[in-house]
Amino acid sequence: MGSNSEEKDQRKIGANDIKLLVMILAIGIACMLALHFFKGDTGQTVRITANGTEYIYDIDNDREIDVETDLGTNIVVIEGGSVYVREADCPDRICVHHVRINRTGETIVCLPHRLVVEII
């Protein structure tokens, strides 16, 4: 391969790249702000979906729920009007590190266990 065609291959950073970057960042940040400012009011109902099965709870009744499926176990805690996942035997434990949720539309997801905790 000649060095000329190689030089042509590696284009310089141009206006197109910058436009693309700015556009995606603008859309992303605008949507984040929109979601932040228009987030729902405090919700009343907790919906837990575990591997396809749905359970509904009232957010004002403090309780601990052991969600057990073939995929694993998560302990969901409803406490003082908000919900969090206290324990899980999933590999990444992203659900356990998630902040407490209490507004409609907020979710905690445990992908390995196909678990979704939602405020509706």
Partner: peptide, 18 residues
């Protein structure tokens, strides 16, 4: 997880991806 609510995470992932 058969839940569309997950898509609300899209803006964060869009920005992070960029």
């Amino acid at each position: 997880v058969r839940t569309l609510a997950v898509l609300s995470y899209l803006p964060v992932l869009l920005t992070a991806g960029a």
